[in-house]
Structures are given as C-alpha cells and as structure tokens.
Write a protein that binds this DNA or RNA. Structure first.
Length: 246
DNA sequence: CTGCTCGGTATAATTACGTCA
DNA sequence: CGTGACGTAATTATACCGAGC
C-alpha cells in the first residue's frame, strides 16, 4: 500500500550528510542511542544502489568500499542494504512464481473438472448401453426357450406371437428407439468417432449370441481402465491424476 | 482547514546461525 | 580445529503515510 517514494523525498534529502549513524552497535538489542537514529537513504543514494544491484546482486569488497565512499555511507550500510535488497528481491520473485503456479493450477483444475463431467456423461451412456444389451440378451434367451417349447409341441404352436421372431434375425422393438437416441447423441457428442467405435462394438455384441457377450463387454470396460473412484476422489495424489492426462 | 492519533507498510539495522577459505 | 569474513533468514526498530476524528 505505501510505496511512499515520492512522499519522503524531502526528509531524505537532509539525510545525505547524516547517514554515518552506523557505528558498531555498542548496545546490542534495544535501547539505541538517540544520536544514532535511523535515517533513510536519499533518493540519489537509493538510485545508485538500485542501479548497481541490477547488474550485480552481490558486491565485491572493493566495489563496496568504493560505493560507500561515493555515496557517503559506511561500507557496512552498503552491505546491509544489499542484503536487505536481496531478501526483498527474493520474496518478490517467490510471490511472482507463486502466482504463476497458481494460474497453472487453476487451468489444470478447470480442465480436470471438464473432463470429469465428460467422463460422468460417458459412464451414464455406457450404463444405458449395457442395460440395452442385457435386455437384448435376455430377450434372445427367452425366445430360444419359446422356440424349443414350440418344437416339442405336436401342433406347431400357433397360439403364441413370440414365435414370430428368432434370436438370430429378429431385433427387439426398442432398437429403433435406440437409433433415435444415438442420433440425438451424435448431434452433440464431441467424441463422435470414439462413440461410433463403441456403437460398432455394441452392434457386434448384439449380433452375436449369448456366449459372446462377455468378451466384448470386457473390452468395452477397458476404456475405463483408469479407476474412476480414484480419479473422482479429490484427495488422490497429484501424480495419480497427472498420469491420467498423459 | 489544522492537528493529532492510530494502524499499516517500507526499510535500515540487528541477531543468530551456516559456510568456507 | 579455530577464526574471521561473509552469506541468509528472521526479527526488531524506526520513519513515513493515509485515514479518521
């Protein structure tokens, strides 16, 4: 808040002569002699010190003596000024680095949130497809039972509408709805390509019989080989979710 | 407007401790 | 190994400013 460089100009001007206050501390710790009151350096002194600090943050002893002579300061004062300047410069740099890192972190966090949302919607989609597949498999199992029963009958089984379609060729009526769903999804899904791949898998799975279901499903689940619970867990280690990005 | 106090900030200086020739 | 010079980090003491009354 208070830089105050401009405001203290006058009081500094008169300090140029009186800056030789820094005798070795006779009374270390507290209770300074009133005579050796702290004086701020003049603007001119500060300018010179800053100028030299820019080119070299540490002073050679000879340069220190020379500078002290030039500015009318004690060499000790020059050394202390450089020490304090280095400390201020370091904390300033630390603050800048902190801000930079924080920005990077915020960016990553927001990307992470977006991906998390996307992952959740994909999980929902996967669940839907799994349910649909399960229905399909169950439907086929039922139909084959019906067919078997019909074959055992002498009459040829005209009483049941279920015998109109067989597991190999007939599709359950919800497949059309599914198509509509899929089209709707296509319209706003950014990962259309991978979605199509998955659809292809599902269709393949639907075509095959009961015994083939397990294997493709397992491969589908490989898409989610990263443990979702660990990803969603806020307390997970950074390396864990950094691995996820790569 | 002037003067005073108060709280916050900047900075000169001190202290403690580590490193190295 | 002891020593002195010099470094950093933490802290203290003082100067200075703006706000509020």
């Amino acid at each position: 808040m208070m830089e105050g460089d401009g405001h203290i100009q006058e009081s500094r001007e008169e300090n140029v002569e009186s800056t030789t206050s820094s005798q070795p501390p006779q009374n270390p710790r507290k209770k300074k002699n009133k005579i050796e009151k702290k004086r701020r350096f003049s603007d001119e002194q500060i300018r010179s010190l800053e100028c030299i600090f820019e080119s070299e943050s540490k002073l050679e002893p000879r340069k220190k003596l020379q500078l002290a002579r030039d500015l009318g300061l004690q060499p000790r004062q020059v050394a202390i000024w450089f020490q304090n300047k280095r400390a201020r410069w370091k904390s300033k740099r630390t603050e800048q680095e902190y801000r930079k890192l924080k920005d990077e972190y915020d960016n990553l966090a927001s990307r992470f949130e977006n991906l998390k949302k996307e992952k959740e919607s994909l999980q929902i989609e996967l669940q839907k497809l799994s349910d649909r597949m399960k229905k399909s498999v169950d439907g086929r199992r039922e139909s084959t039972t019906w067919v078997a029963k019909d074959n055992n009958k002498e009459d040829g089984g005209s009483g049941s509408g279920h015998s109109n379609w067989r597991g190999d060729e007939a599709k359950p009526s919800y497949s059309n709805e599914g198509l509509e769903d899929r089209e709707a999804m296509h319209s706003h899904d950014e990962n259309e390509k991978s979605y199509e791949d998955r659809e292809h898998q599902i269709q393949k799975m639907e075509k095959h019989g009961n015994e083939h279901v397990e294997v493709p499903l397992a491969s589908v689940e490989k898409w989610y080989s990263v443990d979702p619970s660990s990803l969603l867990d806020q307390s997970c280690s950074s390396s864990q979710w950094l691995d996820f990005w790569t």
